[in-house]
Design a protein around this nucleic acid. Sequence first.
DNA 1: GTCTATACGCCGATAGAC
DNA 2: GTCTATCGGCGTATAGAC
Lengths: 201, 201
Amino acid sequence: MDKETKKEQEQEKEKARDDILRAALKLFTEKGYFNTSLADIAEASGAKTAAGIYKHFKNKQEIASALYEWIVNSLSISIDDIRRRNRKSSDQLREIVDLFFRLTDYAPEVMRFILVLNINEFLPDEKPIMESQAFIKILRVLHGGIKAGEIKAADSQRAYCSFFGIIENTLKQVLTGTLTKKADFYQNDAWSSAWDGIVKT
Amino acid sequence: MDKETKKEQEQEKEKARDDILRAALKLFTEKGYFNTSLADIAEASGAKTAAGIYKHFKNKQEIASALYEWIVNSLSISIDDIRRRNRKSSDQLREIVDLFFRLTDYAPEVMRFILVLNINEFLPDEKPIMESQAFIKILRVLHGGIKAGEIKAADSQRAYCSFFGIIENTLKQVLTGTLTKKADFYQNDAWSSAWDGIVKT
DNA sequence: GTCTATACGCCGATAGAC
DNA sequence: GTCTATCGGCGTATAGAC
């Protein structure tokens, strides 16, 4: 067996794993973790049988765990990038908000996973999402803004509640259909409310 | 059998039903609906066996359904009362916020049920909570404030996202332990941020 | 109306052929 | 590494004695 074939096989396997993750993400966020059976995931990930999943994941929880890690890591990387490219916390927050709104429109499952699902209900051993790297970095952005005198707030936690309370609530209403237009439609409004609430004037 | 005995029996039965509901509320909000078995509920509600629950409820879902209805109805009644006793929307909102914060400190399970649980995951046939009477009435309060010129907002939905985004996010952080003090500690701060964000100046 | 026993189904997980 | 078959267990729900 030459290198080419080996590589192809590995790619195949990667793809299969990826298909499982994608299908699981969709089903978990649609029906919930406990309403989704491995058979459902197998079917949705294309012609595979439930047993085959165990070649890629130790068990059902590991699928959710991998999803969680993947989402939180991607977010964390994006936030690193945003912090690197922007100096002012207002600009950083602006871009984070933009990211969240775009994700809501173009990858709603991801945002549903973060905002709607009760992650610790099926991943009891994971840290709460507020303690994940991604959200710690968001708190750092707020902290930076407070230190720089751009943001008024007792502490970054409080600033988070105020600022992201508005952002997340808006997005959650979009995701659950209470707000009926695309997230994009509400972005400017939500940004203004959220930012005006914490900016030092 | 005289009337006294009959009455006592009925009270006994009411109490048993109540014990089941209380135990279920505690367990559902602690571990989640799907992680709670009828055996768990039976044990927590005192010396009863799982089978006995079926004398009081048709099935597990009905317990959750009864809880949901009870919570939403209680809220709805409280809000009616608040609206009756106050004219200005600012006063009405003030009291609603006060209610939410008090519930968070003194009946956290109730607030966890509302804010943390994914109700439609285990009650797929119920309307989303935003369409329940209680929350429709909250939207009316906001609508009243907009019409009276007290609140600036494009519509009550948008005002809701902004105002209750801050309130609910704060309470959620308290309920999940990210904010470590009692809800009461954050109330004035949250109220100011939330109200300042929607008041017309 | 409470407890014992038990039925039944579903789903997660494993074993083994190919 | 995928499919077939199957196990084992849990958890809901029912039946029947008392």
